[in-house]
Design a protein around this nucleic acid. Structure first.
Length: 587
DNA sequence: ATAGGGTTAG
């Protein structure tokens, strides 16, 4: 029975003249699948009036209470069960693990010895989720019967904490790989900024793996498409999903929404949301945050208003999205008001993430003093993302003193963060402080920080074209460069002046201009204009933040060529249309 | 009809 169809099932159930234990069990599970916790109470009363209970009846009660965070009640039914099968024991183990109670899970595990592979995997996954990789690895080493799931838990565990060396080593060592093993590695590379490697592995995935067999596999591959912005592949999966006859429920539906947003297709995300049969808090959060990341603050807040009319309660993540939306659309007062009333209105206590949004919001509006004061007064130590928000604001509002102190804090917290050195260099360069720019370069060299090379890519007819700064390897480079030269003349006629101050080096004017012209995002966009039919948007992905000069240039290009250009950089989305950008020139 | 991998934000 599908969740949300409880009333229908209830009517059928009531009309039945005779009910077997399995019928009762099905009805119990139906109640349990419902997100509303009052139906758990219905499940409990039905359980009490059942004439004959079998192990499944108890197991359903254990897992459904565990899924709603009611661990003690899960334990109650576990203790009540007269005979416990493997599912009962594993269900109770999962009840602890899924609610973050890893110590109690371990206690249960150590209390007996007849555990199977599922039990081992559950506990291993619990250790991975709580960041205890050493414990997970220790269990993995001791395991006698490793399954593909066991390998997957370890591969995705290492990938998630950024240890791609170890993740890749295990991936290569695995005797069997399935779609989850492949996607774990691809997502790992993507989320650690190694987009090229991610794409390489994704393309190397055997086709039979890409053809998903169940809902979770669909969700998983869709999320990988999102990570590497493989829109064409994501759309194919969408239609295959429909053909496979799966209704678009929450899990896979949410992955679909996220895929469309992260691939830059806001319209399809909206359509998919409208078509969903069920929506949970994650669905709403994905929509709000998705619109916000694209700079569509108004739409994000509209979704939030609609959400408030439903029975789904906003959570802390919802409010991160709402504050980000206010920030990105300049609704400063509205954001401040949500921030101070969210505890009272929604029971959400301000976490560091919310403060980061507020520092960003105030900083963006040029209220740097207030941002600094908020950071001083908050009940947490500032982290590097907060200083990062302040650094971004300092750059936009050309406050190099504040920028310098923010950057110094970030260097203390994250000495390896190459992006910060570049950002600070840019701030110095824009105020002509070339000796400071040199110092940054020396610092990076001395500390062994490697500048990540910038590159961009674009999908044209299901094929990916990658460009790097001053690219000379693309087979159609002659056409691209000729087009850019011509475009440059037309842009200058329209009033474009290249912002030479954003280049890292102290070089002659002419040379600076030359270097800027060949940034990877410009090359990719130029190629898109040449290859993608008029009327269709040009979607480009960049692994770093877009530079200021390219941002200005793309605004001109969008209006001169009459094209919609959608750029995903490492931070957010930019929609260039008719000479302006959805980010409102703040990023 | 019940147990292990999967979805959102920063």
């Amino acid at each position: 029975m599908r969740a949300g169809r409880v009333p229908d099932a209830e009517r059928l159930f009531a009309a039945m003249p005779r009910r077997s234990t399995s019928t009762y069990n099905a009805m119990l599970a139906g109640y349990a699948a419902n997100a509303v916790s009052s139906s758990l109470a219905d499940a409990r009363s039905l359980f009490d009036e059942m004439p004959l209970k079998d192990p499944v009846s108890y197991n359903v009660m254990i897992s459904s209470h565990a899924n709603h965070g009611l661990v003690s009640l899960a334990r109650h039914y576990f203790d009540l069960a007269p005979e416990k099968d493997a599912v009962s024991w594993n269900g109770m183990l999962a009840a602890y693990v899924r609610n973050g109670r890893i110590q109690e899970a371990r206690g249960l595990f150590d209390s007996r010895s007849e555990w199977d592979a599922i039990s081992w995997n559950a506990l291993m996954a619990g250790y991975v989720q709580s960041g205890q990789m050493a414990e997970a690895q220790e269990m993995f080493n001791r395991m006698s019967q490793r399954e593909v799931v066991s390998w997957n838990i370890m591969v995705s565990g290492y990938a998630r904490r950024g240890d791609m060396m170890e993740a890749r080593r295990l991936f290569d060592a695995a005797p069997v790989r399935d779609v989850f093993t492949w996607t774990a590695v691809v997502s790992g590379y993507a989320q650690n900024g190694m987009l090229e490697e991610a794409r390489r592995v994704f393309d190397a995935m055997p086709k039979k793996n890409a053809v998903s067999v169940n809902r979770s596999a669909f969700a998983c591959v869709l999320s990988t498409c999102a990570d590497i912005a493989a829109l064409e592949c994501g759309m194919q999966l969408h239609s295959r999903l429909i053909k496979a006859g799966y209704g678009v429920g929450c899990f896979v539906g949410n992955a679909l929404l996220a895929m469309y947003f992260k691939c830059g297709n806001v319209e399809e995300a909206h359509n998919a949301f409208e078509e969903m049969e069920e929506r949970d808090v994650v669905s709403w959060n994905t929509m709000i945050a998705g619109y916000a990341r694209h700079g569509f603050g108004k739409q994000a807040l509209e979704v939030f208003d609609t959400m408030r009319k439903t029975s789904t309660k906003p959570d802390d993540i919802t409010l991160v999205g709402v504050l980000a939306a206010c920030s990105h659309s300049g609704l400063v007062e509205k954001g401040i008001s949500y921030f101070y009333s969210m505890h009272c209105d929604f029971g959400v206590t301000a976490k560091p993430e919310h403060y980061t949004c507020m520092i960003d919001l105030l900083g963006r509006a040029g209220r740097l003093d207030e941002a600094v004061n908020l950071m001083k007064d908050m009940p947490f130590e500032p982290d590097s993302t907060m200083w990062g928000a302040l650094l971004g604001a300092s750059r936009i509002h050309r406050n190099s003193e504040l920028g310098r102190s923010a950057a110094e804090k970030i260097f203390e917290l994250e000495p390896e963060n190459a992006g910060m050195y570049v950002l600070l260099s840019n701030i110095y360069a824009s105020s002509g402080k070339w000796s400071d720019v040199d110092k940054m370069r020396v610092m990076m060299y001395e500390r062994g920080v490697k500048k990540v090379p910038g590159f961009s890519w674009i999908e044209v007819q299901n094929k990916v074209h990658t460009f790097s700064v001053g690219d000379c390897v693309h087979p159609e480079k002659e056409d691209i460069y000729a087009f850019l030269e011509d475009l440059d003349i037309r842009m200058k006629k329209a009033g474009y002046v290249s912002a030479t101050d954003m280049v890292l080096h102290d070089v002659e004017e002419e040379e600076k201009e030359h270097m800027l012209k060949y940034h990877s995002e410009k090359l990719a966009v130029a190629y898109g204009i040449l290859k993608i039919p008029t009327g269709r948007p040009i979607r480009v992905i960049k692994n770093l933040r877009v530079c200021e000069d390219c941002h200005t240039a793309l605004k001109y290009i969008s209006s001169i060529e009459g094209r919609l250009i959608i750029l995903r950089d490492s931070n957010r989305f930019h929609h260039f249309r008719d000479g302006s950008c959805s980010c409102g020139d703040y990023w």
